[in-house]
């Protein structure tokens, strides 16, 4: 960790101003000013000397209303400053958006969920060990242009979807998959005012620029998420497959929301985690399911479609098969069919 200037923002406007200073055109991941909310990712990476902000802008003191979870005509708005624990325990979330409650509950540990905010959570950085350890010189995400040590390294936990020759780091979160599967919106405030966009459009695939992880502009802060008001959100599931029962990242996960009438799927929405470089929307799989009945064979066809473009790198070869089975299991679970 290196010395930094600590600033405590009293308001959102203060925060954006502080966070935009000297930003230039640097993407937020490596900007000189970093926002501090729960600190569960930022402080960790600063101690490892992987992130070296010059200024840390503490946004915990901004208007407490920003952590509110409130029902609106267009759906449920989750303040981005709410903690994961607050959102997971919220009665409306549990009743109407089980996929969100489950994704939050299955993430991290109670201690972390009490600290981490929703906004920070969706921006959690990858657990790729080559990114987190300075002593590996090749990491395009940490040091653009330096290469990728993971491509031919220890990559059992790395991504198979959305990968590039520059980066195969897995997006580590759970909540984001649920947001993807619910067609959620994300609200953002920045130097040029506020904007709203589909959550699915927030994250980027690594491509040639893995250090640019989102479409946030310099200085922008996530202030909220909007979950749609619709009956189908209640038929939703988050399934997380991992090496141990709790407190562990997904090897593969699936967030599934099914809009069903009788036994016909009007629309399926699917987010995949643990297998992709970003929160992953499996539209090809959704297309297979749309308008028909669902059974084991159909679910399998959907899973095949979801992973048709998978590219494995060695140790993670199994993720193609595991990912498919995870999706099949989640779909059957959402449709209340037995495995």
């Amino acid at each position: 960790m290196r010395p930094f200037v600590y600033q405590r923002a009293a308001s959102l406007a203060d925060a954006v101003e502080a966070g935009s200073q000297g930003a230039g055109r640097l993407p937020p991941t490596i900007a000189a000013a970093q926002y501090l909310a729960g600190g569960t990712t930022l402080l960790d990476l600063m101690k490892l000397d992987v992130m070296r902000p010059e200024t840390v802008v503490d946004i915990n003191g901004v208007d407490p209303v920003r952590r509110r979870i409130e029902r609106r005509p267009d759906g449920l708005r989750l303040g981005a400053f709410a903690t994961m624990a607050e959102a997971a325990d919220h009665a409306d979330v549990k009743r109407d958006y089980p996929v969100v409650a489950q994704a939050l509950d299955l993430a991290a540990s109670p201690q972390l969920r009490n600290m981490a905010t929703l906004g920070g959570n969706v921006l959690q950085r990858t657990r790729c060990p080559y990114f987190r350890d300075q002593k590996y010189s090749a990491c395009n995400k940490r040091d653009p242009g330096s290469g990728c040590a993971a491509l031919e390294g220890v990559n059992r936990k790395h991504a198979v979807l959305g990968v590039s020759g520059s980066c195969i780091a897995t997006y580590p979160g759970d909540f984001a998959q649920a947001l993807v599967a619910l067609d959620a919106l994300v609200e953002i405030v920045g130097p040029d005012g506020g904007r709203v966009m589909p959550f699915e459009a927030l994250h980027r695939e690594p491509g040639e620029t893995p250090h640019i992880e989102t479409n946030l502009a310099p200085g922008e802060i996530i202030v909220g998420f909007v979950l749609p008001a619709a009956a189908w959100t209640r038929r939703s599931v988050y399934l997380k497959i991992r090496d141990r029962q709790s407190y562990e990242f997904a090897l593969a996960s699936a967030a599934v929301a099914l809009d069903m009438a009788d036994d016909v799927v009007n629309a399926a929405r699917i987010g995949l985690g643990g297998v992709a470089t970003r929160p992953w929307r499996a539209r090809e799989a959704e297309a297979v399911l749309s308008g028909g009945k669902i059974d084991r064979a159909v679910a399998q066809r959907a899973a095949e479609a979801a992973f048709a473009g998978a590219r494995t790198s060695g140790d993670n070869q199994y993720k193609r098969e595991l990912g498919k089975r995870t999706l099949v299991r989640a779909l059957l679970q959402a449709a209340e069919l037995s495995v």
Partner: peptide
């Protein structure tokens, strides 16, 4: 403990990546 055999260097050197059981296990 996983090792990157190209450089004989450990890669999962913390308790988030070196797994031990949690209570739920």
């Amino acid at each position: 403990t996983e090792i990157d055999r190209r450089v004989a260097r450990y890669v999962n050197t913390d308790l988030a990546e070196y797994l031990i059981p949690v209570n739920a296990d």
